[in-house]
């Protein structure tokens, strides 16, 4: 994850620098990759507390990072090769978003980055991804629960991408130009994720009795985690007031319109399930998670933690 770190202070640096090297000839289709931060003003916006901006970036990043890992667990397990690659592509899109957002969080407030041994080459985004405890993760719990069958990952991506696409569409107007650039990139990716999941939702719902049974069961299973995606945390409220972030509650209506459309086309009833409670009102955004996250992080972080001086 860390060959080349986008340096927020270097307007000319590209996230692809470390990958490209100096030899263009090895690239069969050319090297005109787009750097999402090219020409973007990386100075911190005025009028927003650095710790609030950093926490908000961590929230958005952790949603993407944790779901990316869950989706990547499908690698070599999908129903066929084509879906396997499709899911891997989605996981990589989300990982890319997480990377840019964690780097932004570290730039906004370096105190959020876990301390590593003196001289460690681990960049801040990797330190945030691999050296935080579960209680420091700010993702929604929908991203972290264990995988189920293929219908389960379809439902999870549909709910997640529908909400995140609506958020990112508004975040393109953020006063933080880096967040706006990350959002502009994310909108294109998430539009595809939502389309992918929506099509499979319809296909499974209208397929065989078995595919429909599995789809309805997966939706019932995940539905209690859906309201958390549209709840507004105090930090989100603060950065939204500052014109830097977006309140999930503000996109709830448009998210509902999209989901109702998918449900109606698929002739699937909206599940009648209550939201999964938090602990004294605290949920994933506050660092209160299901036990699935701890197990997932143990696997995701074990190698990096064993080699805090390692270069990847």
């Amino acid at each position: 994850m860390s060959h080349s770190t986008p340096d927020p202070n270097d307007a000319h640096g590209s996230v692809f620098d470390g990958l490209l090297g100096s030899d263009d000839s090895q690239w069969a289709f050319g090297t005109d990759f787009e750097d999402p931060l090219a020409g973007v003003d990386t100075t911190m916006p005025e009028g927003v507390a650095p710790d609030a901006l950093a926490t908000y970036c961590v929230m958005l990043a952790d949603d993407a990072l944790v779901l990316s890992h869950r989706v990547s667990e499908w690698c070599s397990n999908a129903p066929d090769l084509e879906e396997d690659i499709a899911l891997a592509n989605i996981a990589l899109d989300l990982l890319g978003q997480a990377r840019l957002l964690l780097a932004r969080a570290a730039a906004a407030d370096p105190t959020v980055v876990p301390a590593l041994p003196e001289g460690s080459p681990v960049p801040p985004e990797d330190a945030l991804a691999f050296f935080r405890e579960a209680g420091d993760f700010r993702n929604v719990r929908l991203a972290e629960v264990d995988n189920g069958d293929f219908a389960h990952v379809v439902c999870r991506i549909l709910l997640f991408a529908t909400v995140r696409l609506a958020l990112m569409e508004r975040l393109r107007e953020s006063r933080d130009r880096v967040l706006a650039a990350v959002a502009a990139k994310g909108v294109k990716e998430l539009a595809y994720h939502r389309d992918y999941a929506g099509r499979w939702f319809l296909t499974l719902a209208q397929g065989t009795d078995e595919s429909r049974r599995r789809l309805v069961a997966a939706l019932e299973d995940l539905w209690p985690l859906y309201p958390e995606l549209l709840a507004t945390h105090a930090v989100e409220d603060e950065v939204a007031t500052a014109g830097v972030g977006v309140r999930p509650a503000d996109v709830a209506a448009e998210v509902e319109v999209v989901l109702e459309q998918v449900l109606a086309m698929s002739a699937v009833e909206r599940p009648d399930r209550r939201a999964l409670a938090g602990v004294r009102g605290r949920t994933g955004r506050d660092g209160l998670h299901t036990e699935a996250l701890g197990r997932m992080l143990a696997e995701m972080q074990v190698t990096a933690r064993a080699h805090p001086m390692g270069q990847w």
Binding site: D32, E82, I85, A86
Partner: peptide
């Protein structure tokens, strides 16, 4: 080549399998 259930899915599978390196 690839496998897909219908034409629309084939275009999407092609996008996922054959254009993921900016081709």
């Amino acid at each position: 080549s690839l496998h897909a259930a219908d034409d629309e899915m084939a275009v999407r599978h092609a996008r996922d399998v054959y254009t993921r390196r900016n081709e």
